[in-house]
């Protein structure tokens, strides 16, 4: 697995293609479920594809500078990079992507990469709402990642490895081998981070459509927005794949992958529909009070 073969590149692109389509359809289906909760029909499940084509087909676009161009590119690179360095399907020969011995550390970095790129790009757009959104986003995501980092230390100590494939391998052999049961505290700490970084209601003050319309992407339009929409489909799935691999036994087939990612995504969606929005200082305090102590406990327990 450590040696590189050229065939890995088309394999990784195929994984990317599957995840992109899965992400586009899944986010639309989740929106449709939310609409059904409200008694509406909601968007058709292929709406994301049409929006994507429409945004690429817009004829005019303007720029605010080089970083404005690069913002969405970085964001997409964060999503794609995250996916490419994480083994998507356990035991599959072709969906391993470019995972290697220390991929967990790299994944932690890539989770944050897009946010940083977006901060630079949105900052250059010069719109005050973008600047407000970015400062909120950086504060909140940094804080929300802390429980995840602690949980990752905990399971790195538990499994004596930083290789995601080995962590998944250690969880095989039934439900009760999952980290969820062998190290529930780490899982809980990580789920704080999961809900906190999915940009769904209790923690969506970054976008806050009714308040600072709509935060960092305020100035983004046309093809820039299309790139960000693509990332919006890939990134949550890629992030969920990491959580699935670390805490929920990974997936050994695409069917298991689809079900587990959807279920995990719905956790944040469910929490989202029943909770009002936190302000930034409230969410930071929330993570300090609940997320971080659980993470520290998880490390101490191992």
């Amino acid at each position: 697995m450590s040696s590189f073969h050229w065939v890995q590149i088309p394999y990784a692109l195929l994984t990317l293609f599957i995840v992109l389509n899965y992400g586009l359809i899944m986010t639309a289906v989740v929106q449709k479920i939310a609409a059904r909760v409200g008694g509406r029909h909601g968007i058709p499940f292929w709406q994301n594809y049409i929006d994507l084509v429409k945004n690429f087909a817009q004829r005019s676009k303007i720029t605010h500078g080089v970083m404005f161009y690069l913002g969405p590119v970085f964001r997409l690179a964060g999503g794609v990079g995250l996916l490419l360095f994480v083994p998507t399907i356990y035991g599959s020969t072709w969906a391993q992507n470019f995972s290697f011995a220390g991929d967990l550390v790299l994944a932690l970095y890539f989770v944050f990469f897009g946010t940083l790129g977006m901060a630079l790009g949105a900052g250059e757009s010069g719109h005050p709402h973008a600047a407000i959104g970015v400062s909120r986003g950086l504060a909140q995501v940094t804080m929300a990642e802390l429980p995840l980092a602690l949980a990752v230390y905990a399971i790195a100590v538990q499994y004596h490895t930083l290789n995601i494939t080995e962590i998944v391998a250690a969880q095989q052999g039934g439900l009760f081998h999952w980290t969820l049961f062998t190290n529930p505290l780490a899982t809980v700490a990580a789920m704080f981070a999961f809900v906190g970084t999915m940009m769904r209601p209790p923690f969506d003050v970054v976008l806050a459509p009714q308040e600072i319309p709509i935060g960092p992407p305020t100035e983004y339009h046309s093809a820039y927005l299309a790139l960000m929409q693509t990332n919006r489909a890939i990134f949550p799935v890629a992030k969920t794949v990491i959580y699935m691999n670390l805490f929920f036994g990974g997936a050994s087939s695409w069917g298991e992958f689809a079900i587990k990612v959807f279920a995990l995504y719905m956790v944040s969606a469910f929490i989202g529909v029943v909770h009002p929005r936190f302000r930034v200082e409230q969410s930071i305090r929330f993570f300090m009070k609940w997320g971080v102590p659980v993470g520290v406990l998880a490390i101490l327990m191992v």
Binding site: A35, H41, G42, I50, T218, E219, Y220
Partner: peptide, 22 residues
């Protein structure tokens, strides 16, 4: 936007910023 008329099913959505609206 409400259940009675629900324009979303026709691909109509509301955007908060002129940049993204058409």
């Amino acid at each position: 936007m409400t259940p009675r008329f629900d324009a979303y099913r026709y691909g109509v959505q509301w955007r908060p910023t002129p940049r993204q609206a058409n």
